[in-house]
């Protein structure tokens, strides 16, 4: 629908649709308490003096450059998906250890980036490189093309690999790998 601009009113004509402006609540860690029974159970949260959330989701604002701070919390929708934003938690380290563990669990569910512990085998087929690796989530195999573009060396020393399907794998640092794995990786760095 396009509005018609025929009158000579006070202001130029509008074509806008109503959109809610973004608002962000900064959460006070002292008022938060989390609860997680373990396993696949949801992570719950209570904001003291306000309300409880039977299921919360979490996301990093700076997953690579500052994973300990700026965690955004979302409430869970009845269908189990991520819903509205509850607010932003500036400093996770201000939480109790149990609460932090619950937040880590919520974050772990959102970020499934396998961490490569060992490189077992690399087969360079010129335009495609096949990798067999051992990750913190078990053994995995994947292919990479555009190899030099898809290996991202971060300033903090982490190395991110992106496979042909866009899945990512993290190597905490080159030195964290055993010498044999380093030897296999080095030609591509």
């Amino acid at each position: 629908m396009v509005a018609r601009h025929e009158d000579a009113g006070e202001t130029p004509p509008e074509t806008k649709e109503a959109v809610k402006p973004e608002v962000l609540v900064w959460l006070d860690p002292a008022k938060l308490s989390f609860y997680w029974k373990g396993g696949a159970e949801p992570v719950r949260m209570t904001v003291a003096g306000d309300r409880s959330y039977p299921r919360v989701f979490a996301a990093y604002a700076f997953p690579h450059s500052d994973p300990k701070h700026f965690i955004q919390l979302f409430e869970g929708k009845p269908d189990g998906n991520r819903g509205e934003v509850i607010g932003m938690l500036h400093d996770c380290t201000a939480l109790s250890e149990a609460d932090r563990k619950a937040v880590d669990e919520a974050l772990g569910r959102a970020y499934i980036v396998p961490r490569i512990l060992r490189i077992l085998h690399v087969n360079d087929m010129r335009y495609l490189v096949h990798w067999a690796v051992q990750t913190d989530r078990g053994a995995s195999e994947f292919d990479m093309n555009d190899i030099y573009e898809q290996i991202d060396r971060r300033e903090d020393g982490r190395i991110m690999l992106t496979d042909t399907y866009g899945n990512r794998y993290e190597i905490p640092s080159l030195k964290a790998l055993d010498p044999e794995s380093q030897k296999l990786l080095e030609p591509f760095l």
Partner: peptide
């Protein structure tokens, strides 16, 4: 983050896997 919120950009940024 506050500048992004004021610019109505925070929401879409947080939907990206790597956020900011």
């Amino acid at each position: 983050i506050e500048a992004a919120v004021a610019a109505n950009a925070h929401e879409f940024i947080m939907k990206l896997p790597d956020g900011y």
